[in-house]
């Protein structure tokens, strides 16, 4: 990944390189300004909490690269957290399977609606978002569902392995797999080609429908996994969590240099984008800790929004620039 990304050949590559540089820049800023920013306690809790956002951002990246959008990820994560909590008293893996399975089912249904019924992704996943919230509330009876503390289910979200939070391990594994699929498997190239133009992809003999179903299934399953971590970390299935997660995921993907029009994007830069936006909140906490200013947590949204705007404007500039200097 790194050798390729350090030799930018397209404006997309350049944008992705920028976000990685920006992430390191923000880390350097934090490290220099705040005493405990780089402390293992801060870093590990940062990763533990933000892993689930990284997972849904990864799924969103696949969907957006294919030219679609998945608005249901937040609601699906909430529904999955409830399902996982409800089955966590059987065994930890029953909870895990329930959460991931619920997410996968929702994703497959999204894919079916988009690919076979030709419903606009925006509408199809909006419908799924409403349905998944409703299902979560119905299943949970409009309250949090406590998870079992006996079956070891809470280990998934709360414990460490080799000194590193388990959710972070899961996210890392998902990103490595995601990178392999997108960059090293033919199916990943097909996702990019479909996002570049469905008609063209079809004319080139690709199975567009299967590709579309696959990306929504991936997104759903990863949202389900995020829901499992949510339930495990907070000790309860949360039917009302996840509101706005889809927008955070979309923002991460865009900051990560992926065009909303599809056909271009990278797994690594998506991770950087998600971490970058998450870190804004972390930095804000430290800044408040210094005592000079006191910004409420609500400011993080404003700052993230500003960040997103800057990135999108920069990308547009880069795009325009590289088009003007296109090779003959």
């Amino acid at each position: 990944m790194f050798p390729a990304i350090l030799k930018p050949k397209t404006s997309g590559d350049l944008a992705r390189l920028c976000v990685i540089v920006a992430l390191f820049g923000l880390i350097a800023f934090g490290a220099l300004r705040y005493d405990n920013f780089l402390s293992s306690f801060n870093m590990l809790s940062f990763l533990r909490y933000n892993s689930m956002f990284c997972l849904i951002a990864l799924g969103m990246a696949f969907v957006i690269i294919s030219g679609g959008i998945d608005l249901s990820v937040g609601a699906v994560a909430a529904m999955a957290s409830v399902c996982a909590a409800m089955l966590s008293n059987h065994s930890w893996y029953a909870g895990l399977a329930a959460g991931v399975g619920a997410g996968l089912a929702a994703g497959l249904l999204n894919g079916f609606m988009v690919a076979k019924m030709r419903i606009q992704p925006f509408i199809a996943t909006l419908a799924m978002m409403l349905a998944a919230y409703g299902t979560a509330l119905l299943l949970a009876n409009n309250q949090s569902v406590s998870v079992s503390y006996e079956t070891g289910f809470t280990i998934i979200g709360q414990d460490d392995f080799l000194g590193f939070p388990i959710p972070a391990w899961i996210a890392l594994a998902a990103f490595v797999l995601g990178w392999i699929v997108l960059e090293r498997r033919p199916s990943g190239r097909h996702i990019l080609a479909v996002g570049d133009g469905e008609m063209t992809a079809k004319l080139m003999g690709l199975n567009v429908d299967r590709t579309l179903v696959a990306v929504y299934a991936i997104s759903g399953a990863l949202a389900g996994l995020a829901g499992v971590i949510l339930a495990s970390q907070f000790g309860a299935g949360q039917p009302t969590e996840g509101i706005g997660w889809e927008l955070f995921a979309i923002a991460s993907v865009v900051v990560g240099g992926t065009l909303l029009t599809g056909g271009s994007g990278s797994v690594g830069a998506t991770l950087a984008g998600a971490l970058l936006l998450s870190m804004v909140f972390n930095i804000l906490n430290f800044e408040n800790g210094l005592g000079w200013i006191s910004l409420s947590a609500y400011w993080q949204s404003v700052i993230r929004g500003g960040f997103l705007l800057v990135v999108v404007v920069l990308q547009a500039r880069l795009n325009k620039h590289s088009h003007e200097g296109a090779a003959a």
């Binding site: 392999i180 498997r185 190239r189 570049d196 004319l203 080139m204």
Partner: peptide
């Protein structure tokens, strides 16, 4: 006009849907 995926590389466009593989990888 529309017979290639514009953002994919030249090599990928030539081989899309019939990519040479080794052990399932590109």
């Amino acid at each position: 006009e529309i017979n290639l995926a514009p953002q994919r590389s030249v090599a990928e466009n030539i081989y899309l849907s019939r990519e040479p593989r080794r052990f399932g990888f590109l």
